[in-house]
Lab assay of single mutants.
Amino acid sequence: CLCSQPSVTRTVQKDGPNKGRQFHTCAKPREQQCGFFQWVDEN
């Protein structure tokens, strides 16, 4: 991610068109995240 740490892969849980879709995001706690976000299928 943007803070030079490994990102984590998560899955959208919220109902909607992206439910079940995976994405990479910053591994830090929400209030400390660098803002990195990337869909797995758009690499």
Results as ranks from 00 to 15, higher is better:
1 C>S: 01
2 L>R: 11
3 C>K: 00
4 S>P: 03
7 S>G: 15
7 S>A: 06
7 S>E: 15
7 S>N: 04
7 S>P: 13
8 V>A: 09
8 V>S: 07
8 V>H: 04
8 V>L: 12
9 T>L: 12
9 T>Q: 11
10 R>T: 10
10 R>V: 09
10 R>Q: 15
11 T>V: 09
11 T>W: 11
11 T>M: 13
11 T>P: 07
11 T>C: 07
12 V>D: 15
14 K>F: 05
14 K>A: 11
14 K>M: 13
14 K>Q: 14
15 D>M: 12
15 D>Q: 13
15 D>R: 08
15 D>E: 12
15 D>K: 09
15 D>S: 11
15 D>Y: 13
16 G>T: 10
17 P>S: 09
17 P>Q: 09
17 P>V: 06
18 N>K: 05
18 N>L: 08
18 N>Y: 10
18 N>V: 02
18 N>Q: 06
19 K>Q: 12
19 K>N: 07
19 K>P: 01
19 K>R: 10
19 K>S: 09
19 K>G: 05
20 G>M: 03
20 G>S: 05
20 G>C: 05
21 R>G: 01
21 R>Y: 00
21 R>K: 15
21 R>T: 01
21 R>Q: 06
22 Q>W: 05
22 Q>I: 12
23 F>V: 03
23 F>S: 02
23 F>L: 02
23 F>G: 00
24 H>T: 11
24 H>V: 14
27 A>E: 01
27 A>R: 08
27 A>W: 03
27 A>L: 00
28 K>M: 04
28 K>P: 00
29 P>S: 12
31 E>S: 14
31 E>F: 07
32 Q>R: 12
32 Q>I: 07
32 Q>W: 06
33 Q>K: 11
33 Q>S: 12
33 Q>M: 09
34 C>R: 01
35 G>R: 09
35 G>T: 09
35 G>E: 13
35 G>V: 01
36 F>E: 02
36 F>G: 02
36 F>S: 05
37 F>E: 05
37 F>R: 08
37 F>I: 06
37 F>D: 00
37 F>S: 06
38 Q>P: 00
38 Q>A: 11
38 Q>N: 06
38 Q>M: 10
38 Q>S: 12
39 W>A: 05
40 V>R: 10
40 V>D: 09
41 D>R: 09
41 D>G: 13
41 D>V: 12
42 E>A: 15
42 E>M: 11
